[in-house]
Design a protein around this nucleic acid. Structure first.
Lengths: 346, 346
DNA sequence: AGGATCCGTTTGAACGATCCAGAGCCCGCA
DNA sequence: TGCGGGCTCTGGATCGTTCAAACGGATCCT
């Protein structure tokens, strides 16, 4: 008698265990385990008997026990950073949902954690060492943040949403959206509509993402043989900054269209236009970036570059599954093309 | 020799375990466990020695093992439903962040799962039976959805964000925001500014939340001795519906102010005003509900009722901690008061 | 002196799953 | 008949932690 009698199902105190199923199906525990994880190892009639027992008891494997034994949690960790108040940055909401959905299909769940103020690495470290998650999705890779480097040094599996701009030595997998292509698409859309003086309002020079998007605008202008001098402005990502930059550009460069690095900045442009009695879309064209709710619901709508976040999530989960398989199979990094959501302002 | 030698730290294959710490500190495993979970059981000098060993090895308890033994995961499950495209509903983002933060302080993490289309209960069931989460936060309690009833029947611990309007028999804990008080605050703000004909645009009658908010408006009007007849409209929660309702009201009831059940509807009102050349805030006042990003960034800004989501999250986690403690200590249900974010439209 | 009580610590078992080695069986082939 | 080999299935060990009970020693009480 090395093991106590499995509880009879009728008097089961807690949820049924694998041993209960085994007893009911007259097989060993291992056979039940195989029925779940390697069904083709069983003879068809045994499999059927086990499955019937599983159904009869309403058995579901205990996650903790499985995690302990397999040293895996089937959880993907992600730091959740909410949109800043007063901006139109709205990628999180859609992306998180897509990630949850894509993870589910791959047998994973998403665990969120907080930045905890100062030390951004603390959350990662805790989860990693307590083996609470199998891998991470790192979303805030802008501005040479240390997460990627740190995780890579530790050998932690992760996939980044965003290219490692500032770390040419980085070799971790990533998925990104081609911001330059998005800005180019927006610019070319305006050029095709007859605009010749298309201005750019983007972020400060230390934002590599901002510079990438800007290059899409300048490239499109150059390819069309149009000048860019005096038509660009680099400011902080706030509505007020966008409005101010637009005001200056309108005075000094007289653009007939604006392409912006964010919907927040585009809202600033709309503000500046409103103050001068200019009608967006008719007098001056405006294109934003991110296709936020703001772009979708303002009267007339704001034309905006839309990131394919659903696809991004799918690619990220695919890459993660590769990383976590045995042996690890790192896939290629993918760069996805955004689309243009056409609305009233362009 | 009942147990194999703990791995020497120098040759440790994986992360250090409790046994490694015990060996280094010359105590038993249980003592290390106590040092972590019940430090006051140890003699100060022993505690110090164990803590030194923990620090020296960089030990963190293995979550899976702890979860298995304690039958708890320290995870809180929540179904993540993204904002609908084309609306200004933006509560999720802020709420999730607050929940993650509040959970962290209580020693919990947040696990997200998806609705998985048709069967909303499936996600709950899986997580519950596999003991993947300790409890749930149920956010979408509108319209008599079955989750609450279902979870209650199963004895699953959960706290709802939202009162069980349609289930008077429900006894589960909940936290909610007083929508009626919010609408009343908005209405009284307009009345104080001299408006006498304040209209309401809300949701269809089957939305109990909508009816609650509406009662705040009608109550404030009644208390001020003002008529409400012909001043209210109930429509779907879309910008177009809001615009159409506003147009009808402007023609037939000539209100000088609008209080809306959502920012989405308020954007519809702004749209209708724009088409008639009326200036929001100067000619006609408008107040929205939820203080979305849209309210924050549109030119001039939209005055809106703001839900104290940070507080809601804290209260929810407090309630959950109570539910999960031994013995369970259900706290009182809490109803929080919203605030009014004053901006250009009122 | 002897017993009860307390404190700090140790010991063995348990949580519920999977890994691993091997046993039993049936088949074919020599 | 004997033997190797594939196919199923079994039993014991194991993952790393906490629970429950027991332990030795000091103190207190009668």
């Amino acid at each position: 008698m090395t093991r106590p009698e499995p509880r009879s199902a009728a008097y089961a105190a807690g949820p049924p265990t694998l041993a209960d199923v085994a007893e009911l199906a007259h097989v060993s525990r291992q056979t039940v385990s195989n029925a779940l994880n390697n069904p083709d190892l069983l003879r068809p009639d045994t499999l059927e008997r086990v499955q019937a027992a599983i159904a009869a008891l309403g058995y579901t494997p205990n996650r903790a026990a499985r995690n302990l034994r397999t040293r895996a949690s089937h959880l993907i960790g992600m730091r959740f950073t909410p949109a800043q108040e007063g901006t139109a940055n709205a990628t999180m909401d859609r992306f998180v949902h897509s990630l949850v959905e894509a993870s589910r299909e791959a047998g994973y769940h998403v665990l969120l954690f907080a930045g905890h103020g100062g030390d951004a690495l603390e959350g990662y470290d805790d989860l990693l060492r307590s083996t609470a998650v199998d891998a991470f999705v790192v979303t805030d890779t802008y501005l040479g943040n240390p997460q990627a480097t740190w995780l890579e040094e530790r050998g932690a599996p992760f996939v980044a949403f965003g290219r490692p701009w500032d770390q040419p030595e980085a070799t971790h997998p990533w998925v990104d959206v081609d911001g330059a292509a998005g800005a180019r698409m927006a610019t070319e859309h305006l050029l095709a509509a007859g605009h010749e003086r298309v201005a750019w309002i983007g972020w400060r020079k230390d934002s590599t993402i901002g510079e990438d998007r800007r290059s899409g605008w300048s490239g499109a202008m150059r390819d069309a043989g149009l000048p860019t001098t005096g038509l660009a402005s680099r400011v902080e990502d706030t509505v007020a900054s966008g409005a101010q930059a637009a005001a200056v550009l309108l005075d000094e460069a007289r653009p007939s269209g604006f392409v912006c690095a964010s919907d927040t900045l585009a809202m600033g442009v709309l503000h500046a236009l409103g103050e001068r009695g200019l009608a967006p879309g008719r007098d001056v064209a405006v294109v934003g970036f991110d296709d936020s709710q703001v772009a979708q619901v303002i009267p007339g709508g704001l034309t905006s570059v839309r990131q394919p976040l659903e696809q991004v999530a799918v690619e990220i989960v695919t890459a993660l599954s590769g990383l976590l398989s045995h042996p690890p199979a790192p896939g290629p990094n993918t760069l996805l093309a955004p689309t243009l959501a056409l609305r009233g302002t362009a």
